[in-house]
Amino acid sequence: MAQLVLNGLITGMIVALPAVALTLIFSILKFPNFAIGAMLTASAYIAWSLNVLAGLPLLAAAVLAALLFALAMVLTDRAVFRPLRERGPITLLVASMGVSFVLENLCRLAFGNLARNFDIPIARPHRFWGLRVNQEQITTAIVALAAMAAVYLLLRHSPLGRAMRAVADNPALAAARGIDRDRTILWTWAIAAVLTTIAGVLVGMDRAIDPLMGWSYIISIFAAAILGGLGSPVGAVLGALVIGVVQEVSTLVIASNYRQAVSFAAIALLLLFRPQGLLGQRRIKR
């Protein structure tokens, strides 16, 4: 049981990163980005190419991949989402599904359906108080926590973070205060891309990389973000941890193939009983 909770927390930390990315995009661009799963896949493949094909050490490959992918998403925003900016959330979310098809299948076309692994040594798991903890889990916990702390500091205490929150809160007033919305949106995509790249690499280390890896997380990511009340990054992190633990613990009673179904059940229950998210307090409107 304790082992399951631990595994669940680690899964939750991985899910938290794209869930935060989803939340940032939702609060600033006002649409749910259905390409978030494919972004996970694409960034993982970029890192894999740099690591295995180009022979860079994993850390360097990950950093470079994050930068490249940030650039790619900024360009995608320019080409796809910017022309549709004022067309409402429905149009944008259908467009994001289009982006998702393109990203995921570019990966499939380039790399095939085979599962790929990073070039890293296999380490023996450690044991603490009877709990099995492997090296990847330790790395995951450290990296994910560091990334979340960085995002938190950035949002709370940097000019960019204030600008992002201001645009999310009241775009018209933000413009009157001299905040450039397009520049803020651009940085939002870059940050979201970096977060998904980190998550993509962590998933790749933990399991393997295949074209469907992002797809297999997408419901959990949305569940986490909705659980957190869509729009609150801290809420998304807590939501992700809850989802991770619930998924793992549910394997005691349901086959583990039903992970995503468990997330879906969480969404369904939540929408029925607490549509404002777990944290309860609705973001103040207007």
Binding site: P159, R162, A163, R165, A166, A168, D169, N170, A172, L173, A174, A176, R177, G178, I179, D180, R283, I284, K285, R286
Partner: peptide
């Protein structure tokens, strides 16, 4: 300086952050 009739503060930001943002991005 202009104070709009409504929606004239960032509601989800603190008072301190509102004050800071009022000039931070003006060139």
């Amino acid at each position: 300086a202009y104070v709009p009739q409504e929606h004239n503060v960032f509601r989800n930001l603190t008072v301190g952050e509102n004050l800071k943002l009022s000039t931070e991005f003006l060139d």
